[in-house]
Structures are given as C-alpha cells and as structure tokens.
C-alpha cells in the first residue's frame, strides 16, 4: 500500500439494513492519507449508504470504524466533522432558502465580538473560496434555490473543502457540472490529495475514477466485489465487476476480497 503506518480510515465489516433491504452487507474498505479511493457500482449498490455511515448521516447496524487506527464513535454528522470528515452529498444537502454564505457556514457560523452572526466576514470568505471554484459566480445575495445545478454544486464543494478536512467524501461531485467545471474539480482533487487529504470519490464516470483514483472499490447489491489498484486492472475488468460481479483471477487474493 501507498503509506506506511495505519490507514486514515478503516471501515470494517460494516452492515446496514433498511427493513428487509441489506443496503450495505459486510463491507470493509480503507483509505490512506493523500489517497483517492474510487467507489463505483450500479445505482442502488449501496455506495451512498456506506459513505453516509462514515459521515454520520446513518448509524451502522454492526461493524467498526477506525480513524488513524483507533476506534471512532460516529453517531451523527457533528461526530464525523470532529474527526475532520467532510462530505459532499449526492443530494448536495443545501438549505434552499438561505444564501451561499449561510450554506457554506451552516453549523459553523462566524460570530462577531458580541456573539452575533458575522455575515460580512462569512460573505467575504465565501467570495474568496467561490472565486477559486467558480470565478463567474456573482449571486451571493440570492437564496440558493434560485441558482443553477452547477452553482449549487460548487457551493457544496466549497463548504466541504473550506474547513480543513482530513477526510473528504465526494458523492457524485460533478453530476451537475459542465466539462470545464468538471476538469476544475479534477484539478482540485489532485491539489487536495497533494496536501495529504484522503478522498473517497463516488462517480458514475469510470474514466474519472481511473484518472484520479489510486484504488477502486467496486460494490454490487450492498456487497464489496473487490478492491484493486487502478494500475493493476483495466476499465473493462472494472465494468465486468460492476455489471456481473466477476472478479478477475489476478485479484482473487484473500486480502483484497471482502
């Protein structure tokens, strides 16, 4: 593996069922500092559910989460944030009725000396971050409901990267973006990676995942099919794993299988 020492994140034998649906069934994945792990699989494979357990949105039925080798208790999003875990949700999870700055700082508002909201400082910082991600963005006063899909997505990304995350979860971060913005996000991911941040990247675009990822974990029907380094598998082999659940013979080693 790329790093020596214990992984940044280790999710061991995670299980979660919604009623009768086994959304995540005995999944083990790891993430090292400065590493991008692509998480792929069909709709309904359980990717979002798995990372929502890490981000505190769902509580696992069983299994273990270790951060830097020590067991972590993550019961809600506040717990996850305290471990430096930031998430860009597939649904973006923005509050539509307030503006970009209010969304970016939601739950972590800047306060003035008198304990009141420091909207000016928050707007200023938001302008700076958004200037990097989406330089043409001007609608800082509008509720985000009025914004385009791409603009909303850049706010969700800005919120996740602004607070010095150590572990970043990106669930379909480029779904609503055009080619230029997607390329920008790719560049951003490389930069964050070089700063030592570990990233789980969920994407429909297998090219993106090969391009940016160090390893790929494939899920199907709630189970982990296999995890492989991007250098040791082809795109066709990954597609085979996604669609058929076929694990190529070279990967059938006990330590990479679930």
């Amino acid at each position: 593996m790329s790093a020596n020492g214990s992984p940044l994140v280790e999710m061991r034998n995670i299980r979660l069922a919604f009623g009768g649906i086994h959304a995540v069934e005995n999944v083990t994945i790891t993430l090292y500092p400065g590493e991008v792990v692509g998480l792929v699989g069909h709709n309904g494979a359980g990717k979002s559910t798995l990372i929502k357990i890490l981000s505190g949105a769902y509580r696992k039925d069983s299994g273990e989460i270790l951060i830097n080798g020590t067991p972590a208790t993550i019961n809600n999003p506040r717990d996850a944030k305290s471990y430096g875990i930031e998430t860009i949700y597939q649904t973006l999870a923005l509050t539509d009725n307030v503006d970009a700055a209010a969304n970016m700082y939601l739950g972590r508002e800047l306060l003035t000396r008198w304990g009141t909201l420091d909207d000016a400082a928050m707007e200023d910082a938001t302008r700076k971050v958004m200037g990097r991600l989406n330089p043409h963005f001007r609608r800082f006063k509008d509720p985000v409901k009025a914004l385009s899909g791409g603009q909303r997505q850049s706010i969700a990304i800005a919120r996740a990267i602004h607070f010095n995350a150590r572990i970043l979860i990106m669930d379909e971060p480029t779904a609503a973006l055009g080619p230029a913005e997607t390329a920008q996000v790719g560049q951003l991911i490389r930069q964050l990676k070089s700063e030592g941040i570990g990233i789980f990247l969920i994407s429909h675009d297998i090219h993106d995942v090969f391009d940016l990822g160090d390893r790929i974990s494939v899920m199907k029907n709630g189970r982990l099919v296999a995890t492989a380094r991007t250098t040791e598998v082809t795109k066709d082999e990954v597609l085979g794993m996604i669609i058929m659940g076929n694990v190529p013979p070279k990967l059938q080693r006990p330590e990479v299988r679930a």
Partner: peptide, 22 residues
C-alpha cells in the same frame, strides 16, 4: 442576527440538510 435564528430558517428550508450540517 443569531445562530439560533439562522438554524431555525435552515431547518425550515431543508431539515435533512440542517441535520447533516451538524
């Protein structure tokens, strides 16, 4: 002007997002 007020409106706008924001 207060955090509490901001949270009230955030909850009204999108309860799930407010919860996910911590």
């Amino acid at each position: 002007r207060t955090r509490f007020g901001r949270y009230v409106f955030a909850i009204g706008g999108n309860p799930e997002a407010a919860e996910l924001s911590g």
